[in-house]
Design a protein around this nucleic acid. Structure first.
Lengths: 214, 214
DNA sequence: AGATTCCGATACGGTCCAGTTTCGTATCGA
DNA sequence: TCGATACGAAACTGGACCGTATCGGAATCT
């Protein structure tokens, strides 16, 4: 029993909402909302600098200008903190405008490519490729809340394109989705491809028209 | 000065070759070749189980049925051991048969997809996505010796296909390469796509003919 | 035989770091 | 003002793990 009274697991998921809904105000000095946000921001910065495994709670507290106790009063362990930090990093996906599959896909990939260039996100990719052993709940949550929604959005755009006749009816949606998102993943930050401008459009167009002659 | 006499850095890269070339036989009991191989195998198994960061030298020695001293007599530090372990894991890439770009690409992707399903390899992907901070030399070596050769091979197949007229002359080789290898990367082990049979062929074909209607 | 180097096993020192505790102080409701 | 809780700072505990040292014994050379 590590969490204190009033701090149940749900707080990890959406602490602010639960805190406000929980109208029974506790006596004593209220927790600093500023500190809370500073900790989450510091955690994200630390992830960006040292990777998920490399985050040190002491460092996070120092960056946030906060004592470690303040941190552990809110989250029971490191993984809970990381989960909350990722949850606080909201990336609104572009709503497909629905006019053309091509444009929607380009918009999607542009957002994903921009995210991949943000170190706070780039580190998260490692979670899916072996690093996540120490934080299984974090990995599961990341997949549910970040990876899968994006994939499903791409799938839906592809399906709509098939329905409207813009795309071939025999398109393998799953393969096309993996091809598109994989290109962004493979580009990464690490090699000689620094933030090319038309990257997303070129990927989409190359897949759309195919590279076979004729 | 940690390495012993006769053990220079080159040994880390290709210990066996250097040992045989170094014909000056040292007095005393020779090092066990069996132990050496057992350690490398154990290291690869440990990487597969716990990831690059999760490998414990103590565990590697135990798996190999070897004392830790035997391990440190050969490699000065953990990173050197990991480098040697990766180096010992040779994956012969298929020689492009050159008859058709399509077949060569499929063969390439099949090998890469099979590797991605091997936990000993799968963990390595994490190196490229943030985990490698602690082992910079390992990351550099992995990129040089594993990632780049594969990419270049794909590029060369694409270029040849353009030259023979099988592929469109205005194909963006880099984009196509990222798309193909990215699909393998994105598939990963982690989601609901367990070792599908025709995966590689479907990726290649979808890119070749395009998904746009008409 | 004797010197030398290796072997597996085990104990040890040192560092890093998650999580706890303590302390003096600040902020709330009553 | 009083009780309760929060705050930052810092000390502390305990475990994990890298790398070293030491041991008795084995293999190989001269």
């Amino acid at each position: 029993m590590r969490t204190q009274a009033g701090h149940v697991d749900a707080d990890v998921l959406d602490g602010d909402v639960a805190a406000q809904a929980n109208a029974v105000r506790r006596p004593g000095r209220p927790r600093s909302e500023r500190a809370e946000q500073a900790i989450l921001d510091a955690a994200l910065a630390a992830i960006g600098d040292h990777g998920v495994e490399g985050v040190r709670c002491e460092d996070v507290a120092a960056r946030a200008g906060v004592g470690k106790a303040t941190l552990y009063r809110r989250w029971a362990c490191k993984e809970d903190l990381l989960i909350a930090a990722f949850a606080s990093l909201k990336t609104p996906l572009p709503r497909p405008r629905g006019e053309s599959a091509r444009e929607d896909l380009i918009a999607m990939l542009e957002v994903m490519a921009a995210d991949a260039d943000d170190p706070r996100y780039a580190r998260q990719f490692a979670l899916l490729h072996g690093e996540g052993e120490r934080f299984p709940r974090l990995v599961a949550r990341y997949r549910e809340q970040v990876v899968e929604p994006r994939r499903e959005l791409i799938r839906s755009v592809l399906r709509r394109g098939i329905a409207t006749g813009e795309l071939r009816p025999d398109t393998d949606v799953e393969i096309a989705m993996l091809t598109l998102s994989g290109a962004v993943l493979a580009r990464g930050k690490h090699d000689t491809t620094p933030a090319e401008p038309g990257f997303a459009a070129r990927v989409v167009d190359e897949l759309l028209r195919g590279i076979a002659a004729r």
